[in-house]
């Protein structure tokens, strides 16, 4: 399994990458800026991709780096979008149930490690010189094509679902003014449970003034699809 200059070298690279993966993974939840956290997670993913390449899973390893760099970039944007200060450089400490979480994390690690150490795994390593890339391609478009295509359709459904969920325009009007079900007869009172005035989703406390909220969110609704429905000028950042 020595890919780069003998087994000793491979081992060394493996331990270095593992240490990097775990250290940067730990930093994700310890640094005080969300952007730093995002990119620490990206470094962790890249290390895991490197380990996969060491294990001759060339495509999986490189594709991990490719996918995760894009995903973490998007994640970083969202982080900053929902943070109080735009650059995300202010310190933050946003944790709850801290002791319990540490306990759960350690328990998870110890439990899994114990299970790993106590199990006798079969020893059928990858044969030398096996063309893993070709294997994967034949598998994806051969025997397991249905599984692969299902994953593809799932991703398509995800895209549709994500757009439907995050779009501001909905079936019952803009999402931030509260939704009301259609009437029982055309133009009639909304059907279903009667709600308090001001919003269609009574029952939750903590936030008053939906009208004000709606106005507040309007100017920064530029994550709408950009197919010109009136707020094109706002799009220009």
């Amino acid at each position: 399994m020595g890919r780069i200059g003998g087994t000793g070298m491979t081992d060394l690279i493996f331990y270095a990458l593992s240490a990097l993966a775990i250290w940067s993974g730990w930093r994700v939840f310890r640094v005080d800026s969300m952007i730093r956290a995002t990119f620490a997670l990206m470094v962790s993913f890249i290390s895991v991709g490197g380990i996969a390449v060491l294990m001759s899973a060339d495509y999986i390893g490189v594709a991990t780096v490719f996918m995760m760099a894009v995903e973490m970039m998007v994640m970083g944007l969202f982080m900053v979008m929902f943070m109080m200060n735009p650059a995300g450089l202010n310190p933050m400490q946003m944790v709850h149930q801290y002791k319990f979480s540490i306990g759960a994390g350690i328990m998870g690690f110890v439990g899994l490690t114990t299970a790993v150490l106590l199990t006798n795994f079969p020893d059928n390593p990858l044969p030398e010189n096996r063309d893993t890339l070709r294997d994967l391609g034949i598998e994806l478009l051969g025997g397991s094509m249905l599984i692969f295509e299902t994953a593809g359709v799932t991703l398509l459904a995800t895209m549709v679902g994500a757009v439907a969920l995050s779009s501001r325009r909905g079936r019952f009007g803009d999402s931030d003014v509260g939704a009301a079900p259609p009437g029982l007869h055309p133009g009639g009172e909304p059907a279903g449970r009667k709600v308090e005035k001001g919003g269609g989703h009574g029952g939750h406390g903590g936030h008053g003034g939906h009208q004000m909220m709606a106005e507040k969110t309007k100017p920064n609704s530029n994550d709408d699809p950009h197919e010109g429905h009136g707020n094109m000028p706002e799009m220009e950042a």
Binding site: F14, S18, W26, V28, M94, G105, F109, T113, V116
Partner: peptide, 28 residues
């Protein structure tokens, strides 16, 4: 060794998912 590293990553992730307040950090 690989599985222990994977377990460590999983443990860290569990800690993060349980302890973070922000949605986005939870997803991380």
């Amino acid at each position: 060794a690989i599985l222990i590293v994977a377990a460590a990553l999983f443990g860290i992730g569990l800690f993060g998912a349980l302890s973070q307040k922000s949605f986005v950090m939870l997803m991380m």
